[in-house]
Structure formats: C-alpha cells, structure tokens
Design a protein around this nucleic acid. Structure first.
Lengths: 117, 117
DNA sequence: AGAACCCTATCAATGGTGTTGTCAAGGGTG
DNA sequence: CACCCTTGACAACACCATTGATAGGGTTCT
C-alpha cells in the first residue's frame, strides 16, 4: 500500500526532520508543532530533542489534514475520533473513510516523489 | 433512566414545540434550527410544518451541547461522530462518555423541573 | 568556526465557525 | 387579532486553525 513499505524499510522508523516532513505533507512546520501540542501526533525525538517523523506519522498527518480541510472537523473533534479509534480497535475510521485514506496515500506518494526531485 | 420514561409516556413521541424545547435545553431556538440544518437533529413536523421535539431529541441536543461546550468539538466533528455511531451500532459514544450523558440527563430532568414551575 | 537547521515561546494577521440576536414576510391557531 | 410558528438574511462577538515572524539558545555539518 505504501511505496516505502518495501523490503528493509520500516514505516514506523523515524526519519524525517520537521522541515522535511512539513514539505512532504505540504503543511507549515508551525502547524505540525501545534498538532503535537494538541496530542494529535507524537513524533519520535533524537537524543538531542529533535523531532523525527516516520511514514506512519506522515500518514496520520495527512489523515488529520483530510479531516480538517475536506470535512471541516476541528482539532478537538479529531482528538475525540482518535480516542475512539484507540478504544474500539485499530482501523475503524479508516475502514469507514477508505476513499479519504487512499487519497491521502496517493498524496503521500506524490509528495514524496516531488520531495525527491 | 429518564424521568419521563414512565408508563404511557413514549420518549420518541414528538411533543415540544421549538420555543419550549429551546427553553428546556437552555439554547436559543436559532441554534436548534442550525443544528437541524447541519443534519445533527431531525425533529418531527406537524401537518402544518411546525417542528415537534421528543424527549429523545432533547437528549440528543444535550449530547451535542456536551460535545460542543465541554469538549470543544465543532458541528462537522459531531456529524462525523453521529455517522460513526450509525455504522457501528447504537450507543458506542454514549457508553464511552457515560459521565457526560448522565450529566446531560440530570440537566434534562432539572430543566424539565424548572420548565414546569 | 560559521551556516543552517533544530528547539521553545510569544505575538499577530487572516479567514472561518458557533452562538446569539434581530429583522422581514408569511402561515396556523387560540 | 394576537401570538407563535416558518424560512431567509444579516450582523456581532468570541473563539479556532493556519500561517507567519521574531527572539534566544542548542545541534549538526561542512
């Protein structure tokens, strides 16, 4: 499903520093920090406290983007949805809104292509 | 659970006109019309097109109030949550946030007491 | 060492949302 | 007839989401 899910590549591995992550998902770094403050994402940190985002983090960000930009849900609503997801087992929201997710994944793939040029 | 769930009283029976319903749940009538426009509530109508709210409608409104006022979720988010509830079977959200609901029910009971004076 | 990035924290501008409020013009009912 | 209901529009107010800039300080790489 994910371009980078090939052999030897772990989608949960933290690799992108905030400026790179922000460029890939086409969002201001400030916004990513706000998402983290709101408890919506939780990127890893290096020993020297620098945020590192994984592919899974990017996917989560694009999912948040879909909810806010396309559906108009605010951050409080997204937080509630994520809490629901935790309690009801993994991929319920995503199963329900697969089209949105596929869109997100295409966007990631495209963005990563673009970021690589 | 509901004071009015006694014998002979149907919580799904449409009885309250908008001004009465608004007074009971302590919300402006304008707000209730906006909730309906947003697809969050669907009160019955008389033959002459006048809205009639049931006890269940009031409970739903107080649930919406809890989500917006206490949790800060916006109407788009609530709509999504309601869609989830529909697809995942009845009272999932309410089971998760029982304290909020009990609060809502106490509020309804109190409001109806007050409205009766 | 210096450039370029990261960190936190703060302030501000912009556009959008939620809620209440009011006005108008018209219909139903005591 | 008075009063409440209807829809539709407009406005005010406060708050939120996003982007942007700034300051002071740390990390990484060349």
């Amino acid at each position: 499903m994910f371009r980078s899910s090939g052999p030897g590549i772990d989608p949960s591995r933290p690799v992108y520093v905030i400026s790179v992550a922000a460029e890939i998902v086409a969002v201001h770094p400030r916004t990513l920090r706000i998402y983290e403050e709101a408890g919506l994402i939780c990127p890893s940190r290096t020993e020297s406290n620098i945020r590192l985002f994984s592919e899974n983090d990017l996917r989560r960000i694009l999912w948040i983007r879909h909810l806010t930009q396309d559906l108009g849900v605010n951050l409080a609503g997204i937080k509630l949805l994520f809490q629901l997801e935790e309690r009801l087992g993994e991929r319920i929201l995503e199963r329900l809104y697969e089209e949105g997710n596929k869109k997100s994944e295409r966007a990631v793939a495209a963005a990563r292509e673009g970021g690589r040029r």
